[in-house]
């Protein structure tokens, strides 16, 4: 058991390091710190301008969540494509290792990294936009963020599994990013969307997490929050399972047509 877990953590760490390993510290900081801060400032100022409000707390929380999108989409979502690009995909597929652990392992460190991005966003909110955290149940807030990150990485794994058959993921990843920007309620209330589009919002990760965190920030701890957190966890688990199922099916297809390494 220890051996399996050891391999799981080692592989997770290696996969994470492989993504950023080639960057020097300055560029890494630009990508992981400066760019997310700029994105957060942009959307917060946009909300402040359009809604004519000085209280940007709900929009700051929503947009802090969206900072983790880079981890889930451009970190986890591109993992299979990267394996093919590095020439390691056939080795991963052919190895006798537990495929589910290999698959989920690709997302593990991104959950923690996504959590750090959200914390960074909130810190910027406190420093630049006077985000009020005095009413907040910090522990419950972080549990909610952690579960939302799990759900976001679940979506990343689902999209990543498509990398076995899609040669260039950029279009799909960028589209998914904007779908999250629009539908998860970070920049405008979900209720503003036409009714049939509101259903899409609740099929996506992060939507419920944002709603729950906004309630926690207001100090309104109601049973509804636990329902939202629970459903967020279920959303993540469902995405992960569908992603794994896709991986198995697409792997079989790719083996049959000998296109696993073709791009």
């Amino acid at each position: 058991m220890t051996g399996i877990m050891g391999r799981f953590f080692r592989q997770s760490l290696l996969s994470y390091k492989a993504l950023y390993g080639y960057l020097d510290t300055k560029v890494y900081l630009l990508v992981k710190v400066v760019n997310p801060i700029m994105q957060l400032i942009f959307f917060t100022l946009l909300c402040k301008y359009i809604y004519h409000t000085d209280d940007v707390t709900p929009w700051l929380i929503g947009n802090s969540f969206l900072l983790s999108v880079y981890n889930s989409l451009f970190g986890v979502g591109i993992v299979m494509n990267n394996e093919r690009h590095f020439g390691t995909l056939k080795l991963v597929i052919a190895s006798p290792a537990n495929k589910f652990l290999v698959f989920v392992g690709r997302a593990f460190f991104h959950i923690l990294d996504g959590l750090s991005s959200v914390i960074l966003g909130l810190l910027i909110g406190v420093l630049l936009f006077h985000l009020n955290v005095t009413n907040m149940n910090i522990l419950l807030f972080f549990i909610t963020v952690l579960i939302s990150m799990f759900a976001a990485m679940g979506m990343g794994l689902f999209i990543g599994s498509l990398g076995l058959v899609v040669s260039d993921m950029n279009l799909l990843l960028n589209l998914s990013m904007y779908v999250l920007f629009i539908f998860c309620g970070a920049n405008f209330p979900v209720e503003r969307l036409p009714f049939f589009l509101q259903n899409i919002s609740y099929l996506l990760p992060v939507t419920r997490g944002i709603e729950a965190c906004r309630l926690i920030a207001e100090g309104r701890i109601t049973p509804h929050i636990y329902h939202l957190i629970g459903m967020e966890f279920v959303t993540g688990a469902v995405y992960m399972c569908i992603g794994f199922l896709f991986l198995i099916i697409l792997e079989k297809l790719a083996k049959k047509s000998a296109t696993l390494d073709v791009y």
Binding site: C47, D168, L171, Y178, F181, R192
Partner: peptide, 25 residues
């Protein structure tokens, strides 16, 4: 693919995002 997104999809999605934000006011 990235450029196809920027040219074909981003204008529609960005306009939609701004439209939805302005919708209430």
């Amino acid at each position: 693919a990235t450029f196809q997104f920027v040219i074909l999809f981003q204008p529609i999605l960005l306009s939609f995002l701004l439209y939805m934000m302005l919708r209430g006011s």
